[in-house]
Design a binder for these strands. Structure first.
Length: 396
RNA sequence: GGGGAGGUACCCAAGUGGCCAAAGGGGGCAGACUGUAAAUCUGUUGGCGAAGCCUUCGGAGGUUCAAAUCCUCCCCUCCCCA
């Protein structure tokens, strides 16, 4: 393919390419490029935000380049030695292996396995001696580290920054050296690390990597970036109706953003959708077709359709879902509060009481307001708690 | 090493002997409304089958009828000086 054409594809929907001329030169060589992407060894769900980056990586693969996935198992194994971060628990080799498996299952929904190389950074980081680490850290200064937004904010706010956090930045750079990355891909929040890597690579006599950053997708709350720790994410391997429902719960002002970043629609089609929104079409419909698209991408059109129908049934028509979890009860009579807790509709008796008092509980469609009610279990009964939780209670 | 300021629930943050299961905000949940799990408004937000009790304000002890609050020791963070 023509190099200009390649460049155009690569640049689509990116935020920044550092530097474009260098990328052009690399493309001109005609060799498959090594495109680095770092992933977390703790193996969380891959969400739509990360998928933005993965889909870009897939585009590289389709142009004949190689994806090099770096599993951060070194940092994973150490955990956070200061114990400050709960999100960095210590992982064993076993767990890491399991996580990689779990990861690849999700990743290959997007990437092409034939052009993917999985590497663990403990491969080279484990081998570093104290002398190596001193040498590596001599290549960078504290002042430059503190330029990083995240660090400078914390520093100004008198929040702690542990020294190993600074080191981790350097280790990431060292990853790039070890795998001889031509390009590194990631979200805009990673810019600093990626650029640091360029400097360090130069110090080690290596051609600096080209840095390509992608926009950060906002999460369900509409404000913060999508992330597991904010619990505002949509995982690509979540069940179809979860993905569908979560997209329906997006704030309306995020509709276009999601169309742009989570689908492969081109400018023409995006424009059409933008016009439909402007002309006053019910945003609900546009969200529904977005949800349909996304579910189709990661599951199938058939499942997307089913998820859509289910959504209409439950929320528009206030009906019942297709499948309702069954809860068997032995006793002839049971206290409603206890039943809600046992059936998993409430996490504690207190919460169950709250639900009842707030009018969130119905039994076979009838609202229940007495928290001391004893329910007789003679036949099958459908309990609904809140808008989305159901249980079918049957005598056993 | 010396001096100072701090550590409160999911997060931020008030409270400096009883009225404190702990203000306020964020987030979560529920209800109303609707176009939907949008937006907006209202309510609610430790646990235990009533009263009452139990656990929770960095940790361990102590004083007191009573401790987030006072005392002792310890751990952690930040600032200034060296």
């Amino acid at each position: 393919m023509d190099i200009k054409e390649q460049l155009k594809i690569i640049k689509r929907k990116t935020v920044e390419v550092i530097k474009e001329e260098e990328l052009l030169d690399l493309l001109k060589t005609g060799k498959p490029l090594r495109v680095k992407l770092g992933i977390d060894a703790s193996g969380p769900d891959i969400h739509l935000g990360f998928a933005v980056v993965l889909r870009k990586l897939r585009e590289f693969q389709d142009l004949g380049h190689k994806a090099v996935l770096i599993v951060g198992d070194f940092t994973g194994k150490i955990g956070d030695p200061s114990g400050r971060s709960k999100t960095r628990p210590q992982l064993t080799d076993e767990e890491i292996k399991k996580n990689i498996k779990k990861y690849s299952y999700q990743i290959f929904k997007i990437l092409n396995p034939d052009r993917t190389e999985f590497r663990c950074n403990s491969e080279w980081l484990d081998k570093l001696t104290a002398a190596d680490i001193v040498n590596l850290s001599s290549k960078y200064t504290v002042a430059r580290m503190l330029e990083r937004d995240d660090f400078s904010i914390r520093y100004k706010k008198n929040k702690p920054i542990a020294i190993h956090e600074l080191l981790y930045s350097l280790f990431q750079a060292y990853d790039s050296i070890s795998i001889k990355a031509d390009v590194e891909l990631g979200g805009t929040d990673q810019t600093f690390n990626f650029v640091t890597a360029r400097d360090i690579q130069r110090e080690f006599g290596q051609q600096p990597q080209v840095v390509i950053t992608m926009p950060l997708l906002e999460g369900l709350d509409g404000k913060l970036k999508m992330s597991k720790s904010y619990n505002n994410y949509i995982g690509i391997s979540e069940p179809p109706k979860e993905i569908y429902g979560k997209i329906m719960s997006l704030p309306d002002n995020l509709i276009m953003r999601y169309y742009e970043l989570t689908t492969d629609l081109g400018n023409g089609e995006l424009k059409k959708i933008r016009n439909r929104l402007k002309s006053g079409e019910n945003p609900r419909n546009l969200k529904a077709s977005l949800a349909y698209r996304v579910v189709s991408m990661y599951h199938s059109e058939k499942e997307a359709k089913a998820a859509g129908e289910e959504f209409t049934r439950i929320f528009k028509k206030k009906g019942l879902p297709e499948e309702i979890p069954i809860h068997k009860v032995k006793a002839k009579k049971i206290w409603i509060v206890k039943l809600l807790t046992e059936a998993g509709l409430a996490s504690s008796n207190s919460e169950a009481r709250r639900l009842i008092n707030q009018g969130g509980v119905t039994v076979d469609g009838g609202k229940l307001t007495d928290e001391s009610y004893e329910l007789e279990i003679k036949k099958e009964v459908i309990i609904k708690a809140g808008k989305r939780k159901f249980a079918k209670v049957i005598p056993s």
